[in-house]
């Protein structure tokens, strides 16, 4: 184990029982993720990416194997998750939503509002600080969700296709904004997506998972310099090479998951 590893996953397996039959969702997952790394996971639908993230988030338990999240500060929460679907509390204002984790950790109101306001400013929603979610668009709600996770100041961030439900224009804007926030604090991040472009634009490494059961198929390093300007990155020849490399690896798995090859 290297000292700078932030997340270590050892021989992780997850088996479900459905209709008296054993279904293997994750098989023999081994990864170590460096501190401050932006780690993307792509894979065909149903390959267990979300299950893997939910295990890391403590929302599900592994059948066997080990997950370790290194902690430098015992007062800091180990992880905060940004969910795929709308998960901003409708009964809290933008400010209260972003400060939610800090409130549960009993941070005094003055300090937590200051921290939350800072992140709200970063996502450009200062004008909507006291608005309720029903007054916000889908993209704005997802920004709040991202800010809520960052404001909680966890050891690692877990993002489960946070921009998956957004339209393309909004998605591109939010990707750039996420990079901007992430570059200011370099939190270890695991980011699930089904978009190769998104994984390439954001990640330091991209892990490709096999179709059901989910195994690690390959890991591709994204050697694009940071800070990244996404519109420029997409123009680079190297971007296309990486895109091809990932797609070649992934294509086969998508076919399997669609039942064309077994």
């Amino acid at each position: 184990m290297k000292h700078s590893d932030s997340i270590i996953i050892n021989n992780l397996n997850k088996t479900f029982y459905a209709n008296n039959a054993k279904v293997s969702a994750l098989q023999n997952i081994n990864i170590s993720i460096r501190e401050g790394e932006f780690f993307c996971i792509v894979g065909p639908s149903g390959c267990g990416k979300t299950t893997l993230l939910r295990i890391l988030a403590g929302l599900e338990t592994a059948t066997n194997g080990e997950v370790r999240i290194m902690s430098n500060d015992p007062n800091r929460p180990t992880n905060s998750m940004v969910f795929q679907e709308q998960s901003v509390f409708p009964w809290l204002t933008v400010l209260e939503n972003v400060a939610y984790g800090l409130k549960l950790r009993k941070i005094p109101p003055k300090i937590r509002n200051e921290i939350a306001s800072n992140f709200i400013h970063m996502i450009g929603l200062t004008k909507f600080k006291h608005a309720y979610p029903h007054q916000l668009s889908g993209g704005m709600k997802q920004r709040v969700s991202v800010a809520r996770a960052f404001a909680n100041d966890p050891e690692i961030l877990l993002m489960d296709e946070p921009f998956g439900a957004l339209d393309e224009q909004n998605r591109m804007i939010l990707q750039q904004e996420l990079l901007k926030i992430w570059e200011t604090n370099n939190k270890t991040t695991i980011f699930i997506t089904h978009s190769i472009d998104e994984a390439l634009c954001l990640g330091d490494r991209v892990m490709i998972m096999t179709a059901h059961p989910g195994r690690v198929k390959s890991v591709v390093s994204i050697d694009l310099s940071r800070p990244r300007q996404l519109s420029d990155i997409r123009m680079l020849p190297h971007y296309n090479e990486l895109f091809q490399a990932i797609w070649n690896s992934l294509r086969e798995e998508v076919r399997v998951s669609q039942g064309k090859i077994t």
Binding site: P77, S80, M81, F83, S87, F89, G101
Partner: peptide, 19 residues
């Protein structure tokens, strides 16, 4: 999903009721 969020943010039993 809201229960998942609360759990992920370390909600206590009281927090589940009140928040």
């Amino acid at each position: 999903i809201y229960l998942d969020v609360a759990k992920n943010f370390g909600a206590s039993r009281k927090d589940f009721y009140l928040t």
